[in-house]
């Protein structure tokens, strides 16, 4: 569906009104559809982007990494790419941990100035969402990266969920990646009508029709839930991670056992 389809016929049907001059003007409709698109992408994290970034320190400002490519939302995955002198690249996923987890298990990690001791190969990362001076937030690696061997180059692959590009032309389809600006994602086409439901809910406020708002939002949520479920792996393909893993003895070969780390008491 295009913007014309969504702001036009789809909303005529969902609102049961073809008014385009009094309450439901075309501008109102387009704004509501674009807002619905942004909300859908935020709830489902359906669009993403990756940036390759050199490893130089132990914390990184996402605003600097994404630079002028605005529209990034939540960092989802961080990978450490090690490239050897043969040109072979090995990507290793770093474990994501919350700042609270670090506070509990890695005492002394909150350096405000300078670099922590005991560098090594990074194995975990965290995201500080609200940080002074950065709208995108800051990601921190742990252990702090050591100087790599001369035969290796280390980089980070930062995967981030991103916003869709707002639709401005009638022929635009929803869900164009705001950074790559490729064509609309075909795999999301079955979900386009969700935007009509969300936009209709938004516009129904103008009529103060609370029941209609609830009906539209319920239908919109049906789409969101289905897409989230569709992205999820079921049964034996899914990993169940228990809290027990967090408390493995030091010296274990587990990804986050800080064997020999002097910061771990």
């Amino acid at each position: 569906m295009t913007l014309d389809d969504l702001a036009g016929e789809a909303l005529v049907i969902e609102l049961g009104a073809d008014d385009t001059s009094a309450l439901f003007t075309l501008a109102e409709r387009i704004t509501a559809v674009n807002r619905a698109q942004a909300e859908f992408a935020r709830e489902t994290l359906c669009l993403g982007y990756s940036v390759l970034w050199p490893v130089t320190t132990w914390f990184y400002d996402l605003d600097a990494i994404f630079d002028t490519r605005t529209g990034h939302l939540t960092p989802t995955v961080l990978l450490l790419r090690v490239r050897d002198s043969q040109g072979v690249e090995r990507d290793t996923r770093l474990e994501a941990r919350s700042p609270l987890w670090f506070d509990r298990h890695v005492p002394g990690w909150r350096f405000r100035l300078g670099t922590p001791d005991s560098p090594g190969t990074p194995r975990a990362w965290t995201w500080l969402q609200q940080t002074a001076g950065s709208a995108g937030g800051v990601i921190a690696l742990w252990p702090p990266p050591a100087v790599p061997p001369v035969t290796e180059t280390w980089s980070l692959i930062v995967q981030c969920a991103v916003q869709p590009l707002p639709m401005t032309d009638g022929s635009h389809e929803p869900f164009r990646n705001v950074i790559t600006d490729t064509a609309s994602s075909a795999w999301l086409r079955p979900y386009h009508w969700a935007l009509a439901h969300r936009a209709a809910a938004e516009l129904e406020w103008l009529r103060k029709d609370q029941i209609a708002i609830e009906r539209q939002l319920a239908q919109y949520q049906g789409y969101v839930q289905q897409l989230v479920a569709a992205k999820r792996h079921r049964g034996g393909r899914q990993i169940i991670t228990g809290a027990r893993e967090y408390f493995r003895r030091s010296g274990d070969a587990a990804p986050l056992s800080w064997g020999g780390d002097p910061l771990r008491s």
Binding site: C46, L47, G48, Y49, S50, V77, S185
Partner: peptide, 15 residues
Amino acid sequence: WPGNFYGLSDEAPLT
């Protein structure tokens, strides 16, 4: 990987 989460712009053309 749906949604271009692992596509690096310097590794392959976006088209």
